[in-house]
């Protein structure tokens, strides 16, 4: 981290703020689900796809820190340590890893501006890595059988796949408009 230059720091702060802003503004309706899902996971995927693994991780780590210090940056004005310690806290705690995974895969696959590889990265990192962490947390703290814990979260996969597609399209367009060294 000692090699972070000013621009990298500013980018991390900005993307953390983007994820927060996406939680504060009223969500684009997908509705009907008990756990609030908003555009925030889109922010996770975007941070990874646009900033790359290291800065993506740092941006989301900053965001988790904001939640931890008690800023109401989660949907519905929630925040604070209580949310992180709840049964679904693992999903939020996994966001930095998710962003890292998206960025790492995008670099590995040299996804560039191609939407399809970007979609695969966003889905594997933003859904795969995040759910792995979230389910593991749920399993650890609740003592639920692993497969039951996993089953319970399956309902959210379709919505998140749509978000991965959206994130890939956005990342592809942005990378075309403003090439960044990722």
């Amino acid at each position: 981290m000692s090699s972070l230059d000013t621009r990298a720091m500013v980018l991390c702060a900005l993307f953390a703020a983007v994820v927060a802003a996406l939680g504060v503004v009223p969500p684009i309706p997908i509705g009907f689900l008990p756990v609030p899902i908003t555009a925030q996971t889109l922010g996770v995927m975007l941070a990874g796809a646009i900033l790359g693994p290291r800065l993506g991780f740092l941006a989301l780590a900053l965001f988790v820190l904001l939640v931890a210090i008690g800023l109401p940056v989660l949907p519905g004005g929630r925040g604070g340590l209580g949310v992180l310690m709840g049964p679904t806290g693992g999903f939020i705690l996994s966001w930095p890893v998710g962003a890292f995974a998206v960025g790492w895969l995008a670099r590995r696959m040299t996804a560039g501006t191609r939407p399809l590889p970007l979609f695969v990265c966003c889905a594997l990192g933003g859904i795969g890595a995040v759910y792995a962490g979230g389910i593991a947390w749920l399993w650890l703290v609740s003592g639920l059988p692993l497969e039951k814990a996993a089953m319970g979260t399956l309902a959210f996969v379709p919505g998140d796949l749509i978000k991965a597609a959206a994130a890939a399209a956005v990342a592809a367009t942005v990378r075309r408009v403003r090439p960044m060294p990722v």
């Binding site: 720091m9 991390c12 702060a13 900005l14 996406l22 503004v25 900053l62 904001l66 800023l71 940056v73």
Partner: peptide, 18 residues
Amino acid sequence: LMLALTIRLIPLLVGQVQ
């Protein structure tokens, strides 16, 4: 510094989104 920057930038970005 990044934490302070982020806290300051949230209102700005909420405005941008709106």
